[in-house]
Design a binder for these strands. Structure first.
Lengths: 227, 227
DNA sequence: CTTGGCATTATGTCTAGACATATTAGCCAA
DNA sequence: TTGGCTAATATGTCTAGACATAATGCCAAG
């Protein structure tokens, strides 16, 4: 194992072996560079990677120490729903159930940072996997981000159109478990009250708030992450 | 905006502005270095960061192109439950409900890659926030990773002991929504069938499989991530 | 005793140049 | 036409040295 990845591996090994226990100060870059016989920049590359991974904490002047409670980070890759379905080996299709301009409820405008009672585009899309309900997408979309003429969301799902056409800058996503509402039960063909995995996303772009979306997944859906 | 972060920002701006649309080949590092008046290494730093973020795709000889469908990545920071609770401004406590060595069910041994019917340490821990049930932790723990004498999980929760004492190498986490089982309903004080957010984690360490754990969260729990 | 400023020091970033490596396009031969 | 070799090329990594920046701790002034 050579190069900066080799150094990263060796430093990680020493941390795991508790040569350098949690909280300990590890040797400076200069010292490590000499020990490994490389330039300081190479050690820096390795330590920077470990810091990004949360294994060590670095501060100027204070040095580098092993993280006390190594925060475990898991990465979630959020695919376009179509690709998610195809990736499971199932045929994809979707139905646009609702598309209208209507005053948004306060919780939605509040989360997006818009004026109360502003009219937003409301889209209800049922995504199908192998002909069966997969996800019910309930979306409030800021019409200001749409071009004129607006795209036809019956042809391209809003989910996919947004990814390729709007510059998404930041956002957050939250997962909850909720009982299926009567409407959800009817549309997805499950009993009311069935436990559904729900993802709520808020997205902001360069031109301001973009969309708030709620994805209610079919029973049994798993959101998988690796760390 | 100076330095490699400034270059990253400018490249990102051009991608967002569709100066360089999805799929397009962007100028090589040498060309960009000359344009911005910096060394090639600085451009490389900026582009490496963008590649890690999934915005561009880089291949030797083939050059750098804008990602067609920018995969959105969200990062989940998995805290120790005690800190999660304290971070919500609530008092933390936990009760060890069960602790015994018993043959593990096949799905568990299979996921951990252990022989069937192997005896594992079974721990059932109820985590409390402000005196109310917060998470029911159901854990199967490979006794091979424990020191002798084994720690007293009635004093330190297994959740916390593992983070600080075992070298966790890799693992995965999955979220599902499930109806509360009769046992869960009883322990957590909810009606059977209530929708619970469940996290299942499998963890492997340097010394082999470590633990399989199921965390059933109290109703209303949100797992929040930022991207 | 407290506060402000300053020197110290470890990390952060940058440069100019070099070599390594992967990949591709094109050429040549079977 | 096809298969394989080769040369060209863009990214990946590294070096040695330099300056920038941010904490820290000490010291002096109040």
């Amino acid at each position: 194992m050579n190069g900066w990845e080799g150094i990263r591996a060796e430093v990680l090994r020493r941390i795991r072996a508790r040569d350098w226990p949690p909280g300990a100060l590890i040797p400076g870059e200069e010292a490590l560079a000499e020990e490994f016989g490389v330039a300081r920049a190479t050690v820096n590359r390795a330590l920077t990677a470990l810091a990004e991974a949360g294994v060590i904490e670095r501060k100027k002047r204070a040095g580098t120490r092993v993280a006390e409670l190594p925060v475990r980070r898991a990465r979630l890759e959020i695919p376009v729903i179509r690709l998610d379905v195809l990736g499971r080996g199932l045929a994809y299709d979707f139905k646009l159930l609702s598309d209208r301009l209507t005053p948004a409820p306060v919780p939605v405008t509040a989360r997006l940072g818009l004026a109360e009672a502003q009219s937003l585009r409301y889209l209800e899309t049922l995504h199908l996997a192998g002909g069966r309900p997969f996800v019910l997408e309930t979306r409030w979309l800021n019409p200001a981000v749409l071009p004129t003429p607006a795209p036809d969301f019956a042809k391209v799902s809003a989910n996919e159109w947004l990814v390729t056409h709007v510059s998404l800058v930041s956002g957050d996503i939250a997962f909850t478990a909720e009982p299926a509402s009567p409407r959800e039960a009817e549309v997805m063909g499950v009993a009311p009250g069935t436990a559904l995995l729900v993802a709520e996303r808020t997205t902001h772009g360069t031109g301001g708030p973009v969309t708030w979306v709620r994805l209610a997944h079919a029973p049994g859906h798993r959101v998988q992450m690796v760390f």
